[in-house]
Design a binder for these strands. Structure first.
Lengths: 202, 202
DNA sequence: CTCCTAACCTAGTGAGGATTAGGCAAGCTA
DNA sequence: TAGCTTGCCTAATCCTCACTAGGTTAGGAG
């Protein structure tokens, strides 16, 4: 098999193994086995385990950024914009289950990987800010009038979505629009109104 | 030092190390060093690393359950009840930073620990259900009329709170009531009303 | 036919870290 | 004072990987 093709096979196998086991427990031997080669071959294509992992993260993150980039801005009313972005995100999760898990749900304990994830979470938060900060002009920022409250609202949104995506991973039978509706009901309308029977576009 | 005291020292040190490094990266040698003994002494008190970890989880989880148990039920209106429970939770996080991190934020990649965490998350979700299911009688369950929508609402609440607690860990200067207010604003009132300037008890 | 290179392989090496073997010293107890 | 128990230690052992050394084979170029 030519090098480029083999490399592609390895990247796919590695993404699945990293997603399933996390960085620390992912073994080069398993990645090799799933790529139908022996472990040393991996080192013909990547300098080290960390190099392989790093390149994959970079690649998947670039794809994700492209998806988000299309949906974070726009002239529609905020509710519509948020709905569109959330829907796009869950669509990505649906179609790239391994890439998503590898980037956002790898919980390896390795300090470098942990630092990488902190960095990615920070990027996610910063990326989400424009989605919320213009909810009501300069003053009525979501959750409060200051920077910190905005950050907390963003982190709530981010972690709620990340958590629900993980939950969805174990409940694949539920259609995406219901998951997205759950986010909109709870976070956009709020539990109080949802409890009264109001629904997002019901 | 008598055995009981030594054991207590070890449990405290181990909680901190597990919280800081996660199960997989926590080394028995570091736990021993922080307990002012050599590693073999740990085996006079605990059968193995996993045994030590398991007993600590059990102990901390029991404490947490006691805290939650007091706040999940009650006759107040749902908004008040949720506020009280959320506040109690963040108060626990504030006063037991290591125990909390060890139980909820250890991301070690070890399969047994992962299974344990899945189990704990499931317990958390089930514990939260009574908080939301009576929002509006039998029909107007938060997020939808069926079981699944309730579960999604619960998971959103759970993961949002867990995520914000982690964020708070890096922003200790923010007083607890502001964090709790952020949860109530975003999840109870909803981002739309919050964006309009409404505030939880503002 | 000979040489070269690409793509692989088998068989180590070495480090990190849990766990165990076996012993030593200080204080009781008789 | 002899003997036992408690609390602790040093020095292995052993296992799991990431990574490396050093070949082997197939097929194309000259």
């Amino acid at each position: 098999m030519p090098a480029a093709a083999r490399r592609e096979v390895i990247e796919e196998a590695a993404t699945e193994v990293f997603a399933a086991r996390g960085y620390a427990r992912a073994s080069m031997e398993e990645i090799a086995r799933r790529s139908d080669v022996s472990a040393p071959v991996l080192y013909d294509h990547f300098a080290s385990k960390r190099d392989l992992h790093g390149r994959l993260i970079e690649r998947h993150l670039a794809e994700m950024r492209a998806v988000w980039g299309e949906h974070l801005t726009g002239a529609e009313p905020p509710g519509e914009r948020i709905h569109r972005a959330v829907d796009a995100w869950f669509a990505y999760v649906e179609s790239h289950p391994f890439a998503w898990r590898m980037v956002f749900a790898d919980t390896s304990g390795d300090p470098d990987v942990r630092a990488l994830h902190d960095e990615i979470q920070g990027q996610s938060r910063r990326a989400l800010i424009p989605l919320l900060e213009h909810l009501e002009g300069a003053t009525g920022v979501a959750g409060g009038q200051d920077e910190e409250s905005l950050e907390m609202a963003v982190e709530l949104l981010r972690s709620a979505i990340a958590g629900l995506a993980l939950w969805w991973h174990d409940h694949r039978d539920i259609p995406r629009e219901r998951v997205v509706a759950a986010v909109m009901n709870a976070l956009w309308l709020g539990l109080e109104r949802t409890g009264r029977g109001e629904r997002w576009r019901d």
